[in-house]
């Protein structure tokens, strides 16, 4: 698992941890039941605040990505990850529907929209 904390991006540190662990879980790199590093050791290895790390883990637990078992450790949740992926795909579909509506109102063609997406990806 890779976690990179950057000061250059305008995102709070706990959000960066949350997002990167979540992405590792959704991409399948981390499997259900896999053990995550303890809050303290992750914080100390990354040289960041323990409280901030705890906040990221709390959020991950709240959203059902991980289980925190007291005195044992943190595990990737067994909870249906397929369902999480499904909801994300659903969200994506909704966004794309909006994109299409806006594109029509601006008179953009399909190729122009795809070109726009490519440009966005390059600039990121």
């Amino acid at each position: 698992m890779h976690i990179v904390i950057s000061n250059a991006v305008n995102q709070p540190i706990y959000g960066q941890i949350y997002r990167q662990i979540k992405n590792s879980i959704l991409s399948g790199e981390l499997k259900a039941g896999d053990m995550l590093p303890s809050i303290r050791s992750l914080a100390k290895d990354l040289r960041i605040s323990v409280i901030t790390t705890k906040r990221a883990y709390d959020e991950l637990e709240k959203d059902g990505y991980i289980d925190v078992v007291a005195a044992k450790g943190c595990y990737v949740a067994e909870k249906n990850l397929a369902w999480i992926r499904e909801t994300h795909l659903k969200q994506l579909e909704d966004h794309l529907r909006n994109v299409r509506e806006l594109a029509v109102s601006c008179g953009l063609t399909e190729t122009e929209i795809i070109e726009m997406y490519r440009l966005l990806q390059k600039s990121e």
Binding site: I13, I48, S49, I51, T52
Partner: peptide, 8 residues
């Protein structure tokens, strides 16, 4: 204050 919250 918690350091990271301060900066946020």
């Amino acid at each position: 204050e918690e350091k990271d919250r301060l900066l946020e």
